[in-house]
Nucleic acid binder design. Structure first.
Length: 700
DNA sequence: TCACCGTGTCATTGC
DNA sequence: AAGCAATGACACGGT
């Protein structure tokens, strides 16, 4: 059994808490007596609990009777018991109770009457007083107070035995105003509670007097009571934090069975108080530990999720009160816890979201929404849906990531949902890239972002960006961080931001499926500048907390690479990602080299073309020059020819006609004038002979 | 809105 | 056989 504190005077805290726990897949397994301690249900009449465990006391708070016959808190109000006409006068009642051997002092006439009835064997009457047959599960008086934690009336563990507790002492100091403020609209219930308080203290005083006057009370009891009185006096003089410390120690003693002073009224005051300065405020789920013998139900199972539910729940349920009303109180006593507060929202975020994914369809939440108050709706619908938008779309793969490795699930979800230029992470190298491009989900971790994602994009994580992509992670993979999934200020901000609105479209769609961003580039807007500067693989590696840099992974020789993989304990996903990073990195370098090479080839070819064109121009110029020289020589030869013939005379002294004769140079250097016909035939013979010789030379 | 370019990625091939 | 380089093809973002 757990004692829970309703953080809000109207009971919405418990309702909210119940919903949160339900979302988290945890059953709010409270004892019936907690119902007694809860505020009157009339304040909850509009807050119908849907989907809650009928055995939950929160269900008992519902105006609708639970199937199991659980009573409503107002039906169990001490006033109702007091109205029992069979109840004897107070003094007589106490004496009779003590005569029955009850080893503790009932603090009110009602309690005394209840104890009396039970101790006298009138269990039916006691049940009737309690109005809850389930209360008999623990049997006797203990059931009326403590459920299964108290085995029998004579067990000495009845928490009502304390006539004075620090809580009560503090209540005494400010009882009137607080009692009035506690339930301001409860149709006189505040005054009733005041009356109950007075009765309680009267009973305390009365019992103390009887202690002195009557000898039937054992000396052990007297000693115990005196000790408690001393504690009370000390506590009254102590500052709040010390008083709380005392309360805590008292609780511990109570748990250990060494202290029976934690009475029902203490709890009632504790639970019903909404004043932040009250030390009770500091008592949350975790501050009131489970009683011995109580079953470890869902509350303790929170440890399974590595989540401090006591903080998460209290932080969530009493968000405004915790932040606004008790800035300096003991909401967080542990300085370590205080320092870790930024992580809590994410703790909570992941805790109940993760469980919600497993246990509660989103539609259930939307079904809740019309029945809860606005504040709570803001908390639940926005935060929860935001959670869903962030986390649920990671689907099974992300869940497997979360359960498999040690990394920030949110980062992973962001990174793997990040719509890439073409595809997601190729964990299976044998997939169709086209399908990946279209669906982005084939194997995958690659889901696209959610439309309803309304977090501040700039607040996304961007830590551990230097060095290894996963940051400096000295420990091998698989070692969960102390902070679990948390540690992200961004999500604290997100979780605390109750002002952003949820798009109706997101609300409508989350019962079936989430809508993903139409434009992949949307996701890049959610990345900080620093993260934008990282490559996708770097972000992925960082998200998976891979303790190597992408550069190392890519450039490392294959032997070193394999040895590195074998030396570190890496999950399959991490190994797969590392190999993909290496493959993509090498291929990227190869593609760059290829393109560079291609560009080099193109540039070389262009250069060759230019060179050849230049050479061609040069050759053209040379050819032109040669032709020009040839023409000049021809011209000169022509002039020379004519000059020679102009000076030649035949035998008769007539000029020689150059059209009929030609000059022929012999091998010995002499010049002969021969008719052109002979020159032509002779040239033909010489050409034939020269060709014949050339052919013969070619064969040799 | 379209074309172009740079880039990343995948599939394939050859070494 | 594994690893790698090279490369064509494709898609996407930016201009």
């Amino acid at each position: 059994m757990k004692y829970l504190k309703p953080w809000r005077s109207d009971g919405g805290g418990l309702l909210h808490l119940t919903i949160l726990l339900s979302l988290a897949g945890l059953r709010l397994d409270l004892d019936l007596d907690l119902c007694l301690l809860l505020p009157p249900p009339t304040l909850l009449r509009d807050e119908l609990l849907l989907g809650c465990d009928p055995t939950s006391p929160a269900y008992a708070l519902s105006p609708y009777p639970a199937p199991g016959g659980w009573g409503r808190a107002d039906q169990l109000h001490p006033k109702g018991r007091e109205a029992d006409p069979a109840a004897p006068p107070e003094g007589q009642l106490l004496r009779e109770v003590r005569a029955l051997g009850v080893p503790f002092i009932p603090r009110t006439r009602v309690d005394a009457w209840l104890v009396h009835r039970v101790a006298a064997g009138d269990t039916d009457g006691a049940h009737g007083l309690l109005g809850a047959p389930a209360a008999s599960s623990a049997g006797g008086v203990g059931a009326g107070v403590d459920g299964g934690s108290q085995a029998a009336p004579g067990g000495g563990g009845d928490p009502r035995a304390s006539p004075s507790s620090p809580l009560a002492a503090r209540e005494e100091e400010k009882a009137p105003a607080e009692q009035t403020a506690r339930v301001p609209d409860a149709d006189g219930r505040a005054s009733e509670e005041n009356e109950v308080l007075r009765e309680r203290h009267e009973a305390v005083d009365h019992s103390s007097q009887h202690e002195e006057n009557e000898q039937r009370v054992s000396a052990q009891e007297e000693k115990s009571l005196q000790q408690k009185n001393e504690d009370e006096n000390k506590t009254a003089d102590k500052p709040d934090w010390e008083a709380e410390k005392t309360t805590e120690s008292r609780n511990e003693r109570h748990l250990n069975g060494t202290d029976t002073s934690f009475s029902m009224e203490d709890l009632f005051q504790l639970l019903s108080s909404s004043q932040p300065e009250n030390s009770v405020e500091g008592i949350s789920l975790g501050d009131i530990p489970a009683l011995p013998g109580s079953s470890n139900d869902g509350m303790n199972s929170s440890a399974h999720y590595n989540v401090n539910f006591s903080q998460a729940i209290s932080h969530d349920v009493n968000l405004h009160e915790a932040m606004l009303l008790c800035p300096d109180n003991t909401f967080r006593r542990d300085p370590v816890v205080r320092t870790s507060q930024p992580q809590e929202p994410f703790l909570q975020l992941n805790s109940h979201t993760t469980n919600a994914e497993q246990s509660l369809p989103v539609a259930n939440l939307t079904a809740f929404l019309p029945f809860v108050d606005n504040q709570m709706r803001n908390l639940t619908s926005e935060d929860f849906l935001h959670d869903l938008n962030i986390n649920i779309f990671d689907e099974i793969n992300l869940m497997s990531l979360a359960t498999e490795g040690d990394f920030d699930a949110m980062e992973v979800s962001q990174l793997f949902q990040e719509p890439d230029s073409d595809s997601g992470l190729s964990l299976n190298s044998s997939h169709n890239s086209t399908s990946i491009t279209k669906s982005n989900t084939s194997h995958s971790i690659c889901e696209e972002g959610a439309t309803g994602y309304s977090s501040d994009p700039e607040s996304l994580p961007h830590h551990n960006l230097e060095g290894a992509v996963g940051g400096n992670y000295p420990a091998p993979m698989g070692h969960r961080n102390d902070s679990g999934f948390c540690g992200d200020l961004a999500f604290q901000h997100v979780f605390h931001n109750h002002t952003y609105h949820l798009e109706p479209r997101a609300l409508e769609s989350n019962s079936e499926s989430f809508s993903w961003p139409e434009k992949p580039e949307k996701m890049s807007r959610y990345l900080s500048d620093t993260e934008r500067n990282l490559s996708r693989d770097e972000r992925r590696a960082k998200a998976l907390r891979i303790p190597f840099s992408v550069d190392e992974i890519v450039r490392m020789p294959v032997d070193s690479f394999n040895s590195m993989l074998s030396r570190h304990y890496l999950t399959d996903l991490q190994v797969s990602l590392i190999r993909d990073i290496r493959r993509r990195g090498k291929n990227k370098v190869a593609a760059q080299n290829c393109r560079r090479r291609k560009m080099d080839i193109i540039l070389n070819l262009e250069e060759d073309v230019c060179n050849l064109q230049a050479k061609k121009e040069t050759l053209k110029r040379e050819r032109a020059q040669c032709n020009k020289a040839i023409n000049i020589m021809k011209q000169k030869l022509h002039h020379l020819y004519h000059d020679v013939f102009s000076r030649l005379r035949d035998d008769e002294g007539r000029p020689v006609n150059p059209n009929q004769y030609a000059l022929q140079y012999s091998h010995d250097g002499s010049v002969l004038i021969v008719p052109k016909e002979l020159v032509t035939s002779g040239h033909k013979k010489e050409n034939r002979k020269r060709k014949r010789e050339e052919i013969e030379d070619g064969f040799h």
